[in-house]
Simulated assay, not measured.
Amino acid sequence: MNLAEAALIGAGAFAAGAVNSVAGGGTFFSFPALLAVGVPPVVANASNSVSLWPGSLSGAWAYKRELAPLKRYLVPMGLASLAGGVVGGVLLLRTQDSEFARLIPWLLAFATALFAFSPRISALLARWRAGRPATAQGGSAGGWLTQLLVSVYGGFFGAGMGILMMASLAIAGHEDVQEVNAIKNLLSAVIYSVTVVTFIVAGAVSWPHTLLMILTATLGGYWGATVARKVPAVWLRRVVIAVAALLTLHYFMKFY
């Protein structure tokens, strides 16, 4: 890395940490920054996942009180996340850079749509489950399979994984927002942890870029939390959506 590349990587990760602490969607800033400085697509995705790992652990720890009564439910869901994360990570490592590059615009478009329409998705799910009996505490085979599929996607790419997981948990019968966030954070931490180990063992991580991103994303997260009261989350969401849409268009033009 030269100084200009380090500045771009640091700015992208700082922005990712800041928007993740308020509105979500940080991957739209950090992942393209890695691509912009010439990091190969597969290594860029693996390095980005590693840089997000500490945040996922701290998010899970913050909800330990809400998670305590759900141990019976979390064990099979955690195993689904573990298995799916391994499969997704291995799929990424077995994908050639040229193949993954052509997938990037489609993956970004999918994640952008999820992020943009997540409030509407949440509202539709709330109406869908109204009057239905809750099944979350005991879990179900359908819920386990859905979590497995979400985890494969999370291990392979990750952007928008949280939205997918919150939707699947709502369908499974979870109604309390704090409970949904708690479970989502824990299962995301499981997915990130197993994919991080997979990527590190495979030697797919660019450590100079990743360590810089961890540092600047942490600073960005702290800064974002301090200014969250001053900037409405809705405006940050609009900025993230606009940036994500422009990046999606850029990569469609670049790779097609």
Rank of each mutant, 00 (worst) to 15 (best):
L148H: 08
S118H: 13
A68V: 04
A15D: 13
V90C: 07
W235L: 08
H209T: 04
V190D: 00
R237E: 03
S58W: 03
A109H: 04
I214F: 11
V152Q: 00
W106L: 14
A6P: 01
G131F: 01
K230W: 14
L169I: 05
V22R: 10
L215Q: 02
P232N: 03
I214V: 15
A83C: 11
L91N: 01
P32L: 10
A6E: 08
K254T: 12
L107G: 03
G26M: 05
M77A: 11
T112R: 01
S56C: 09
L211N: 11
T198W: 02
T27W: 06
I200F: 06
A217Y: 03
G25A: 07
G12E: 05
L82Q: 10
S47D: 11
F28S: 02
G158I: 10
K71H: 11
K230G: 02
A101S: 12
K230S: 10
V190M: 00
K64P: 02
T195E: 06
A109G: 15
Y73L: 10
A225N: 14
W144S: 14
M77H: 10
A123Q: 14
E175S: 08
T226V: 14
V227M: 13
M213A: 14
N185K: 05
L103P: 06
S81K: 04
A217M: 12
A62Y: 07
G143D: 06
G84C: 07
L212G: 13
F28A: 03
G131N: 06
W235Y: 14
V190K: 00
G12D: 05
R237G: 11
M213G: 03
V234H: 13
I214G: 11
R65M: 05
T226W: 13
V86I: 15
G158D: 09
A116I: 11
L186H: 05
A242W: 04
Q137H: 08
A189Q: 04
W61H: 11
G131A: 06
V197P: 13
L124Y: 03
W106N: 00
A126H: 14
T95S: 14
L70D: 08
F252L: 09
L8D: 00
W235K: 07
S30K: 01
K71S: 11
A46Y: 02
A15K: 02
Q178P: 00
G142V: 00
L107C: 09
S118C: 05
A83P: 03
F100H: 08
L34F: 13
K184S: 10
T146Q: 15
L79E: 11
L124H: 04
Y73M: 12
